[in-house]
Nucleic acid binder design. Structure first.
Lengths: 332, 332
DNA sequence: GTGAAAGCGCTAACAC
DNA sequence: GTGTTAGCGCTTTCAC
């Protein structure tokens, strides 16, 4: 068995209460005994039993980081940045539990006792029910990446629409009029926001494009490849293609080179996300940076702060997205 | 407050002991009362308090997935596949806690009480002390990705050396004699294994290369770019370059195109890992696939099995790596 | 087949 | 400044 405060108490010749207080730095305890007890605890290699502490304190020291899904639609870079951002903030103080919402058969185990707080990295409205459930259970909750309206939560999202707008406008400024879009996964809020930004920019500049310029994708490399192949077969081929994420842009570029054409000479391609690899593609990808790591860090800080102080404005905060100009778009 | 077994007991007119037994499917309980109690529990929306259960059962329901670091050296794809693999296996039964070992100031909180089991995704010997610590504390432990000799653990690793060997041999078969290597991060076991495989293949085929053909990298995109730039300046430029991972290969290809040369016409490039994006690069990357997701899945299964049955051979299992031939290597 | 009672390790009133 | 006591919610002997 491992050592408990009672063992320490025995050795120190005090009550276990005193040990508990000393170890928790209670101001009530004589500094000398405190030091003595801490020394003994150290020498005995004492570690608190968190289950016991959790039981009486009614906190779990668990923080959940939930993704809509851990399968298709979540890119590796996205997961990586999110985990990094959150982990940087919580340090040793909490356990970071990572899970896909669609892995739950029932949300039964998700409650205040098991989670001191939850961060939802939401990519689609399919996790609306989860968010409402958590909010209902009054678990401290921050939702990242997707705006949530039905319930009041702390909500941090990148401004995808204005990013897509600026990117599309940039394409127009480079002389493009035939601009197609390869869309993201159906049902994802980001898909809609990016499409909206694209449309808005076209409208603003009085450009109309044929229906065939809207091609669906699902954020996968393969879907970008397939979508671009379709576009290339069009009699009225676009001169530029806005791919709704970098993965699809990579697939799209591939499709272009496969038919003997080249980017950006024959067709310009732009992406969204600014993945790590995007600067290193050939050609380097013009894209929009989404500050996922910052978002995650801010979300984690907000959540921790809420857990400690118990108050905070539950409002939507937009995070700035940024146009990153590289070499995959040609001026015509 | 949330509902406890006592509340259920009151409503059902039985003792809380009976409720506990019923909910745990004890065979001692009358099937009818059992059903009745379960129904009541359901209707009251009961969820067990895991802290209480953990306290008495001495299990935490936490599983740790530890990486050497969550910062430089761990690629997004690596993290992604590992989390996916493990998560697929553990389902609802455990909490998956993800952390970088280098984030710990002290391993104090890592013990049997907090973790029912630990999976270490080890990338370097720097986490040797962590592994020994966990092994010492008798926490069920499986180490993935790196062979561990100093202590007996369940150990699953991809056969990097034979992968590198086969890849290098393939380069030789394609007619290359001037083959350089861009190495991985210093101190990582994988760096050494891949270098060894490369060397072995060269020796086997009686090829010697100048000292300058060994260029150091650190698994980053940037380092691949920098390393390739160095190689390109060599008077006796190599005809093929083995990059010790795909990220560096991407950086390397970039460096080649930047000076107006092309892959594979002017110089062949090969990678290692088979990242998602590798098939979609231009040119598609010839590389070696490491079965990280399978490894993780197997590790998680093994660990769970050990936790339940309490026995298992603690031995090294090598996982097959696979040469993936694409378009970035030219036959000369 | 069910209940009474003890105890897991900890914190926190309440005494003194 | 320290000790006594109770209790968090659960499982598990031991009775009956």
């Amino acid at each position: 068995m491992s050592v408990t405060i009672k063992d320490i108490a025995k050795l120190a010749g005090v009550s276990h209460t005193t040990v508990s207080r000393a170890l928790n730095d209670s101001p009530l305890i004589n500094p000398e005994t405190k030091e003595r007890i801490k020394a003994i605890a150290g020498s005995m290699n004492y570690t608190p039993n968190y289950s016991a502490r959790s039981l009486v304190l009614d906190r779990s020291y668990n923080l959940g980081l939930f993704f809509t899904t851990l399968h298709t639609g979540t890119s590796a870079g996205f997961l990586y940045e999110a985990i990094k951002g959150v982990n940087d903030v919580i340090k040793d103080d909490y356990n970071l539990i990572v899970r896909g919402i669609d892995d739950y058969k029932s949300f039964h185990k998700v409650n205040r006792k098991n989670f001191d707080g939850i961060i939802v990295m939401s990519q689609s409205e399919s996790d609306q029910s989860f968010i409402e459930y958590a909010s209902d259970k009054e678990i401290p909750l921050v939702v990242l990446n997707r705006p949530v309206e039905s319930v009041q939560v702390m909500n941090f999202v990148p401004d995808d629409q204005s990013g897509a707008y600026r990117l599309t406008e940039y394409l127009v400024q480079q002389g493009h009029r035939h601009i197609a879009i390869i869309e993201g996964k159906q049902g994802f809020k980001s898909t809609q926001a990016r499409r909206d930004g694209y449309r808005e920019a076209l409208r603003k500049h009085g450009i109309t494009v044929p229906e065939a310029y809207y091609v669906s994708g699902n954020y996968d490399l393969e879907s970008g490849h397939a979508a671009m192949s379709k576009l290339l077969e069009l009699p009225d081929r676009p001169t530029a293609v806005f791919c709704c994420n970098d993965d699809m842009a990579l697939g799209a570029v591939k499709a272009v080179t496969e038919v003997g054409l080249s980017v950006p000479e024959d067709i310009s391609v732009a992406g969204f996300d600014d993945h790590l690899f995007s600067a290193f593609m050939s050609p380097a990808l013009t894209t929009v940076r989404r500050p996922i790591e910052e978002l995650s860090r801010a979300g984690a800080e907000k959540l921790l702060n809420f857990i400690e102080t118990k108050h905070s404005e539950k409002s939507l905060v937009l995070f700035h997205t940024e146009l990153v100009i590289r070499d995959s778009v040609k001026s015509i």
